[in-house]
């Protein structure tokens, strides 16, 4: 089922001559995991702002085309209800942290507080997400005195606590170490398994390859490619579109250039192993 539908959407931020988004059409289906990739300044964050209704409700500006969220035109949505339906994790955790809470526990509880959730339920939920993200030891710390990686986990936890149907996540792992990054992807995978719809902006292409159902490539404010993950990421034109191919796909292209093409271009390690063994088998 189409959860969010964008039809020929063009958007200008206020007082800006050039369009931030140009002629965007795409469908976000319920329960799927989408990866948005592409160059910085190419419109990824603007697309997120559109998908979660901050464009046009907060940013104003000029919106053309049609945006439908859960069957209702975005203009007709109540912003409070929209905020509860769609959770958003900021690109920069230094921006998201409220600055008005003195402990990590209160910071994570803030969204639920604003929704008027009963205290007992709120406490249970905050404890649950802290455990999930492995940040229980930060509970009593001041959110403004955390490292970049710790802050990023707290920012993620405070949105997870809201338990929204749709999650728009803008680069949740930029400050995290490789294992921490892996953990975040596993949590997102778990959220997907529980039926949530996920839209993730991320540069870590090898993880996009492993986890996402669909990939959207943005460049110059346009969607320049979209489709099933394997189809998009194995495409040889990816570098021209300002995106990086997974390491194993680059390897696949290099094997073809060296005169030993694999059966097709792999996007994950498992797939690459299988293809190489198949090639060896065929050579015997």
């Amino acid at each position: 089922m189409a959860l969010i539908e964008l039809q020929n959407v063009t958007y200008h931020y206020p007082y800006v001559k050039s369009a931030a988004l140009q002629d965007i059409s795409c469908t976000i289906e319920e329960g799927k995991f989408y990866g948005i990739i592409g160059e910085n300044g190419g419109g990824k964050t603007s697309l997120c702002n559109l998908l979660r209704g901050l464009i046009p409700h907060f940013y104003q500006g000029k919106l053309e085309g049609k945006v439908t969220i859960a069957g209702t035109d975005v203009m007709e949505w109540d912003t409070g209800k929209l905020a509860a339906k769609i959770g958003y994790v900021f690109q920069n955790p230094f921006t998201q942290i409220s600055g008005i809470k003195e402990t990590v526990f209160e910071e994570i509880a803030m969204g639920l507080e604003n929704l008027g959730v009963p205290k007992k339920e709120m406490v249970d939920e905050v404890l649950r997400v802290m455990k999930l993200l492995n940040i229980e030891e930060l509970m009593e710390k001041n959110p403004n005195a955390l490292s970049g990686g710790q802050r990023q986990r707290v920012a993620f936890a405070s949105i997870l606590a809201m338990n929204s149907d749709i999650l728009v996540i803008d680069e949740p792992t930029s400050q995290l170490d490789p294992q921490g990054t892996q953990d975040v992807f596993e949590i997102i995978q778990m959220l997907k398994a529980s039926g949530k719809t996920i839209i993730l902006v991320e540069h870590k292409i090898d993880l996009i390859a492993r986890y996402c159902d669909e990939v959207i490539v943005m460049q110059g404010g346009r969607i320049v490619k979209q489709g099933p993950t394997a189809e998009v990421l194995s495409s040889p034109e990816l570098p021209e579109l300002g995106a990086v191919a997974p390491q194993v796909s680059q390897f696949g292209h290099a094997m073809a250039a060296a005169g030993m093409p694999l059966d097709h271009i792999p996007i994950t390690i498992e797939e690459a192993i299988e293809l190489i063994q198949k090639q060896k088998g065929a050579a015997k």
């Binding site: 892996q182 090898d206 997974p246 390491q247 194993v248 390690i269």
Partner: peptide, 15 residues
């Protein structure tokens, strides 16, 4: 150190 090996190192080791 909780780092990860490069993707192609993992691939080469598996092979």
């Amino acid at each position: 150190s909780r780092i990860l090996k490069p993707q192609l190192t993992i691939l080469a080791e598996s092979l």
